[in-house]
Simulated assay, not measured.
Amino acid sequence: MKIVVSGGGTGGHIYPAIAFINEVRKHNPEAEFLYIGTKNGLESSIVNRANIPFEAIEISGFKRSLSFENVKTILRFLKGVSISKKYIKQFKPDVVLGTGGYVCGPVVYAAAKLNIPTIIHEQNSVPGLTNKFLSKYVDKVAICFQEAEQFFPRNKVVFTGNPRASEVVGNDRQKGRDVLGFSSTKKIVLIVGGSRGAKPINDAFLEVLPKVGEKQYHVVYVTGEVHYENVKREVDKVGNPSNVIIKPFIHNMPEVLAGIDLIVARAGATTLAEITALGIPSILIPSPYVTNNHQEKNARALSEKGAAIVRLEKEISGAALLTDIDQILLNEEALQQMKVASKGLGIPDAAQKLYDLMKQLI
């Protein structure tokens, strides 16, 4: 079995691709893969670290306003299609999967024109331009939110969920707590503003730090590498409370998630797939800086089912954040109800579902 995978730009496109590859390897250890991405994108380092053969093309996204850059993008797309066809003809895949990002455009389009079975995977509730374009040419469209179905040809859509969810289930709760260094049985809230952090969330947290130190629960605060030194400096001024751990980044997130009781986070698709697979209640602060405001729409899909509280970034203050945390962690009934609601939205076998969809096409 030979599979070409393409996805890039953000971890939200890349990690589901890696999770899918890991799932295929469980079923077929002899399977061969070729990952096509961009040389300068995040996917280059992540895929190489995972020991997956990698080839690169050059591509950029369309500007939403009239721009000469769009002419360059069309030329890059056509060149990317030509190069992708060369890679595909050499590799001879049985199927091609695109998990999002501009790079998928020429790769999956080239495969479709070569009559190779194709799937695109859409992680968000509102798809980007690339997947909308590709949906006209591919055989199947795998989605993670029912809300995304309306944007694609109905006869192609299959609800699979996000393969990343499958990688967090099965981790041990106590081990997650041990990794964080908490020996007590007190509840734990994880606050994280994405891989680069989020200054408004940092500011809100620092605003109420002394009060956080008085709480009967633990707080793990992930600042993002960029903000860590500034946040640590401010924390040191008032004294680091014993129930608060400050970290720049967490590399073993699946392990850590298994040990927590509540998360305060952005509303990226991968994050939501992970926390619903584990049944973790959430306070979601969607990034306002994403295409089509898709993070808020992702978050609303959880809040409407009672699995999350949504707070827009412009609404965030330290007092509001602490009130929301208290209302969940200090109210056992509310906490359990949100856990059940979150678990009900999770798809822990998402990787298997995507694998089964692929097998149908081969």
Rank of each mutant, 00 (worst) to 15 (best):
I283P: 02
P241H: 07
I245F: 04
T271S: 14
V264L: 09
L278V: 08
N292E: 14
P248F: 09
T276D: 05
Y289Q: 13
P281H: 01
F249T: 07
T270R: 00
K237A: 11
V264W: 04
V264S: 03
P254C: 13
N293A: 00
E274M: 08
Q295F: 09
G239D: 08
V290D: 09
I280A: 03
T291V: 14
V256H: 07
P248N: 12
P281L: 01
M253L: 14
E274Q: 11
V256T: 07
I263V: 15
P254F: 05
L278S: 07
I245S: 08
P241Q: 06
Q295V: 09
I245A: 05
T276E: 06
L278I: 09
G268V: 07
T291S: 13
G259W: 10
A273R: 02
N292Q: 13
P288G: 03
N252C: 05
A269C: 00
V290N: 12
P288E: 07
A273W: 07
P286W: 09
I263P: 02
I285Y: 02
K247L: 15
V264G: 07
D261G: 09
L257N: 14
N293T: 00
I260Q: 11
N293G: 08
G268M: 08
G279L: 05
G259M: 11
S282M: 10
F249K: 13
G268N: 12
L278R: 04
A273Q: 05
P254R: 13
A265H: 06
I246D: 11
Y289C: 00
R266P: 11
A277V: 08
P241D: 04
N243R: 12
I280Q: 07
N293V: 00
N252I: 07
I250A: 08
R266H: 08
I275P: 06
R266M: 08
A265Q: 12
H251S: 15
A267C: 05
A277E: 10
G259N: 10
H294W: 08
E274L: 04
T271M: 14
Q295L: 07
L262E: 10
I283S: 02
A265M: 06
V256D: 11
V244F: 06
Y289P: 00
P254H: 12
D261I: 03
I246P: 04
S287Q: 02
I260T: 05
K237Y: 01
L284M: 06
I246V: 15
V290L: 14
I263G: 03
V244N: 01
D261C: 01
H294T: 14
I250Y: 13
I250F: 01
I280K: 10
F249A: 12
L278W: 04
V238L: 15
I275D: 09
E296L: 14
P248I: 09
V238D: 01
L272A: 01
V244T: 10
Q295T: 08
H251W: 10
N292L: 11
L262R: 04
K237F: 00
L272V: 03
V238S: 12
